[in-house]
Amino acid sequence: MVEAESINTILHDPHWFPVRYDEKRDQFRLRRTLRQDHRDAVFLSEEYLGPAGEWRVLARKAVTRDAIGAPPYFIFHSGFCCSTLIARAFDLPGTAMGIKEPQMLQDVTGYRIRGASETQVDAAMTAALGLLARPLEPGEGVIVKPSCIVNSEAERIMRLRPDAHALYLHAPLHVFLGSIARKGITGRLWARELFAGLQHSGLANLGYTAEELFGQTDLQIAGLAWLAQHIHFTRLADQLGPERLRMLDSETLLAQPRYAIAALGSFFGLNLNPTQIEAILNGPAFTSHSKFGTEFDASLRESDRAAENLYADEIGKVAIWLEHVADGLGANLGQRHALLG
């Protein structure tokens, strides 16, 4: 445990980044993490940050109100929709920093799944969000991109931080299914794990029995996961209103990047100037692969899409089936409160 005299220093130093939440000990594990570490890590987890470096342990109860940062902004997402690109785009020293899939939020989500009470989860999430909201530099906006696993906690997060704004970024259905198919068994397993997580959170009650779900293909399950998330965020958007939650699809982002970044900057209260927007569009977020760091542009993305043609028949059939499922549920597949009207 951190010595009492050093707690205040750690709480007010955002370079002590909370990587894990230990529910049994009700404490956070923090790692010394500089801006370059944020840039280099694909996601902010032990896997990508590595075991090296300085670590500290901090009791959850030590996270006092005065240590909780300014209103954070959130990028919730469907998966495979350029969300990491957006988080990387807002690496603007002195203006903003994008936090990519902090593992700690998955820990708190798991705490709830494993049976913690609402009061316990609220307390852990409040402290976690407070630690995340500390800007690396004074006055910077903090933009948090949680993992899809955390989507079930979006309503809680927005309730606990009534000053926060959020974007729901999603891939259109055909694009999402294509990404799953192109990634082979890895993508198909990921989709099943996502659906299982949504089931545990009560967000995937779409009218199918366990036996019926067992008989569905990987892409059908992927489509149901996409639909469950879409229904969830559509309802949340209606509940919170456009002042707090907007929706954007990946294809609109890529087709109109300048307008999307400008609109998102405004929505997040950053008021980016034209020079900053151009720097983002010409910077690594839009010119290198978000996961691998290799050169990447629109032509390479189209090449990836061409590989999906092998699965075009399966994707098309699942998409038509899912539209019928959505109709039966009375779900609107459009997006409410779009970022770009």
Rank of each mutant, 00 (worst) to 15 (best):
59 A>K: 12
122 D>S: 14
158 M>T: 06
311 Y>P: 02
307 A>P: 00
321 W>N: 07
113 I>C: 06
62 A>M: 13
265 G>K: 05
7 I>W: 13
75 I>F: 10
341 G>W: 02
244 R>A: 04
258 R>C: 10
242 P>R: 09
148 C>R: 02
122 D>Q: 12
317 K>F: 03
64 T>V: 09
173 L>C: 04
299 S>I: 05
96 A>D: 05
59 A>G: 14
319 A>H: 08
8 N>K: 10
128 A>E: 13
12 H>L: 08
154 A>V: 12
102 P>G: 06
89 A>R: 03
18 P>N: 08
46 E>N: 10
257 P>S: 11
131 L>D: 06
187 G>Y: 06
22 D>V: 11
243 E>Q: 09
137 E>P: 01
194 L>N: 15
16 W>P: 12
287 T>N: 14
145 K>I: 00
339 L>V: 01
92 L>R: 04
88 R>T: 00
158 M>W: 13
135 P>A: 04
121 V>S: 14
122 D>M: 05
121 V>K: 11
308 E>M: 11
264 L>I: 10
272 L>F: 04
93 P>Q: 05
227 L>M: 10
280 I>H: 01
322 L>P: 06
5 E>Y: 12
168 Y>T: 03
155 E>R: 15
94 G>F: 12
246 R>P: 08
228 A>R: 09
140 E>S: 11
193 E>S: 08
293 G>W: 08
10 I>W: 15
210 A>H: 11
170 H>I: 13
332 N>H: 07
341 G>K: 08
173 L>T: 06
120 Q>I: 13
75 I>L: 12
25 R>D: 11
251 E>Q: 13
136 L>V: 02
28 F>T: 09
120 Q>C: 13
53 G>I: 15
2 V>S: 09
309 N>D: 09
300 L>P: 05
100 K>G: 00
186 T>Q: 12
152 S>M: 15
241 G>M: 03
283 G>R: 00
122 D>P: 03
265 G>T: 04
195 F>H: 14
334 G>L: 00
56 R>M: 11
224 L>F: 01
230 H>D: 11
193 E>W: 01
125 M>W: 15
282 N>F: 13
77 H>R: 03
135 P>N: 06
305 R>L: 13
230 H>P: 08
188 R>N: 09
156 R>T: 11
255 A>G: 07
171 A>R: 03
322 L>H: 05
208 Y>G: 02
255 A>W: 02
19 V>A: 01
272 L>V: 03
300 L>Y: 09
